[in-house]
Computed example of a mutant assay.
Amino acid sequence: MAAEKPLVRNLAFPIMVNGCTGKMGKAVIEAATSAGLQLVPVSFSSEADDGKVMQLGGNDIHVHGPSGREVILASVFRENPDLIVVDYTVPSAVNDNAELYSKVGVPFVMGTTGGDRERLYKTVEDSKVYAVISPQMGKQVVAFLASMEIMAEQFPGAFSGYSLEVMESHQASKLDTSGTAKAVISCFQKLGVSFDIDQVQLIRDPKLQLEMVGVPEEHLAGHAFHMYHLTSPDKTVSFEFQHNVCGRSIYAEGTVDAAIFLASKVRSKADKRIYNMIDVLREGNMR
């Protein structure tokens, strides 16, 4: 009996990556083409990038600025009814982009962090479009986060009275506090720790990243180092949680898995419309 073909091949579909001028967008295109997905030669970006033609994944990608996006996306969606859009733009564009995708009715994976997340979810709920929305696309990091959420749910108050220090280092171009850090901190708060998001120590200076954090020089332009340090009230007990990521492949591969997952939900006409990466992990069938 012939071996069953991998899920990726069975679910080959057109994918549009918005933000292809950025490093994450480029990484997703590379991962998507390696997975055998059909890359749509159109991408949305900033006004400054309007008119550019990017050679990525063996294709010429035509980049469009904000003007006329609805007409362009609607046209692309008509030509590619199985289209999945992936968004890796900038935090300030999250809500406008989500409203565009929802208005046109195209399923999307929102990999961009930031924006008004409450408004983002309401936009998708009201439109009933299919979407994967997650502040973290790295599968293994998501698994860690899921375990934190289980601990917070099952053992509320377990760290009551403990003090928390959080340090996160990302490339200088990352404008906002890590969504993953916010999610982990929320778990610690449920576990009884008093901590405000503005207490997070953000490291964006390359010199400090090299000397204090220990980021390899070749990954200064793309990394995510997180450290969570808990200390008991009497200073006799401490716990440390840490996850260090160099490069972007972990996020790009997870994003492609999320797109494949979403395509399967659209094809099966699933009742649930909004998903996160924990849903993707629970489904299995990842590359």
Rank of each mutant, 00 (worst) to 15 (best):
M1P: 06
E4P: 10
L11V: 07
L11I: 02
P14N: 04
I15Y: 04
M16L: 15
M16Q: 14
N18Q: 11
G19H: 01
A32F: 13
A32D: 06
L37D: 07
Q38Y: 14
Q38M: 14
V40W: 06
V42R: 09
S46W: 05
D50R: 07
G51H: 04
V53K: 10
D60C: 08
I61E: 04
I61Y: 07
H64R: 12
H64G: 02
V71H: 06
I72R: 10
L73H: 11
S75Y: 02
S75D: 15
V76N: 01
L83E: 13
A98H: 00
S102G: 07
V106M: 09
F108C: 01
G111T: 02
G111E: 05
G111C: 01
G111Q: 02
T112Y: 02
T113Q: 03
G115Q: 05
D116F: 04
Y121L: 13
Y121V: 14
K122Q: 15
A131L: 02
V132K: 02
G138K: 07
I150C: 03
Q154L: 10
P156Y: 08
A158P: 01
S160L: 13
G161Y: 02
L164W: 11
E165P: 02
E165A: 15
E168A: 13
H170N: 14
Q171L: 09
K174W: 13
T177E: 12
S178R: 07
G179I: 03
T180K: 10
K182I: 09
K182A: 13
V184E: 02
Q189E: 15
L191E: 07
V193T: 08
F195R: 00
F195W: 02
D198L: 11
V200E: 03
Q201G: 00
P206G: 03
Q209W: 06
L210S: 09
M212I: 14
H226M: 15
M227Y: 06
Y228E: 10
H229P: 00
P233W: 03
T236E: 11
V237R: 13
R248C: 09
S249N: 12
I250P: 01
A252S: 15
A252I: 14
T255I: 15
A263C: 10
S268I: 00
D271L: 11
K272S: 02
I274V: 11
I274D: 00
E283G: 11
